[in-house]
Design a protein around this nucleic acid. Structure first.
Lengths: 236, 236
DNA sequence: CGATGAATTGACATGACTCAACAACTGTGG
DNA sequence: CCACAGTTGTTGAGTCATGTCAATTCATCG
């Protein structure tokens, strides 16, 4: 079911050199000075997750935030009846676990969907720095706001209207912006719990898109997608 | 359609005395010292909205945040096809317009659903103060996080499952916690665009609940609700 | 190769939408 | 106070999309 990844297993062994990080400008700490970095005694660590690995569980306490360097992670909530609902997808350059700074608890279960690399930050350092460094302060607010605003989109685009539109919107959202028109395909079950449809409906819809050549499998789990065609469906 | 409320019309004429506000402890500025207040030159004003009044529109620029003292406001987004979707309800002690601090634009249309009183804060002051006052800083993060977490609930409780469950969950959410078991009833159209169902389905479901005596009209638009009964439906 | 879990497909039932008529209510002007 | 128009809510009949249940194929992995 849900394998638990241990920090030992995950840690690559090399400390992350944030100053030279290729994601520097888009990453949480981009506003920090070298002097700020000196105040962080606990090291920033790099983790690697395989598909299915659980980064943290709902309700768990912890002391870390995460930034995704590359990959895709789902945030899952469970309904009273045990059904799972995916409430957000977190991808490259996004931050995970911000709620820790407020609640000291994770609010979701975080599970990797693909091979994923991330950086782990000590939360206390972020809290402390955010009160002195206005750039980080502002960056944190931006990230919260971004999550909130994506969450509204999630509602309007992925939880409204007929299944075809929803699936089309989801595929468009999964486009890898470095490989435009190449799209990582989720399991039918994940599609279902994102869109709140059954796996059968998800499967039928994906199959129909394949038949109509709106999507074409390039390699295992990667599809070339007809952006204009799918957009036509979302608008229909 | 959408009446525009002018500040002149709305302003009660008396400056709000935040120091003596009855909502003080739950309100945005609860962490401020009297000295902080001296730094706010632009006055905090009190507004009153009638049902249907539009506080701000999507994309509009502005310089203010709002706290709801009493009442209920919907945040609306429009889909490409023009259909409206309500993405959040904002109620007493909640803050509206936080996104201004990041974007300088409002991201939704804010429309009063009932007679509503609110306070208007100059955004620049909040931004400035949040960088020096750690309590306000933390409070802002909490509010962002609260909005985000409610937004996930909105998804799981109000946008998932059959119409009956959704309506039941919505009614439970509308309970006025000062008048437990008394619940303000929304228009069928609003129910529809919250739950993403048609007005007809909303009407049928509400009617059924009335027949089953799960809800009973006490006075115009106020219902006594059978909490246990509705909870049974949400769990079913 | 056989075993397991995922994906697909079909047949059928059902819940929600559509279209349409009508009832109830609100506010207006006579 | 009534008559009217306009809006909102209710209800019904028929259709369509999605859910349900079940069988089958496909992919992966030991």
């Amino acid at each position: 079911m849900t394998k638990r990844v241990t920090i030992k297993k995950a840690w690559d062994g090399s400390n992350t050199d944030c100053l030279n990080c290729s994601l520097r400008s888009s990453v949480l700490f981009n506003g920090l000075t070298e002097k700020d970095f000196e105040l962080i005694h606990e090291p920033v660590e790099q983790l690697t997750l395989d598909p299915g690995d659980v980064l943290y569980k709902m309700g768990e306490s912890g002391h870390h935030l995460f930034t995704i360097r590359d990959g895709l992670v789902k945030l899952v909530q469970y309904l009273p009846d045990g059904a799972e609902r995916i409430v957000r997808l977190v991808k490259s350059t996004d931050v995970l676990g911000l709620e820790m700074m407020v609640n000291q608890r994770y609010e979701h279960e975080a599970v990797a969907l693909r091979h994923t690399q991330l950086c782990r930050y000590p939360m206390a350092a972020v809290t402390r720095l955010s009160q002195h460094n206005p750039v980080l302060h502002k960056d944190l607010m931006s990230r919260w706001q971004k999550a909130l605003s994506e969450s509204a989109d999630w509602l309007t685009k992925l939880s409204t209207g007929p299944a075809k539109k929803r699936v089309a919107n989801l595929l468009l959202l999964l486009i890898d912006h470095e490989n435009p028109a190449a799209c990582f395909m989720l399991s039918r079950q994940d599609i279902g719990s994102i869109l709140s449809i059954t796996t059968e409906t998800a499967s039928r819809t994906v199959s129909e898109f394949k038949r109509l050549q709106l999507i074409t499998e390039i390699e295992r789990n990667y599809f070339d997608i007809d952006v204009a065609g799918l957009q036509a469906i979302t608008a229909a």
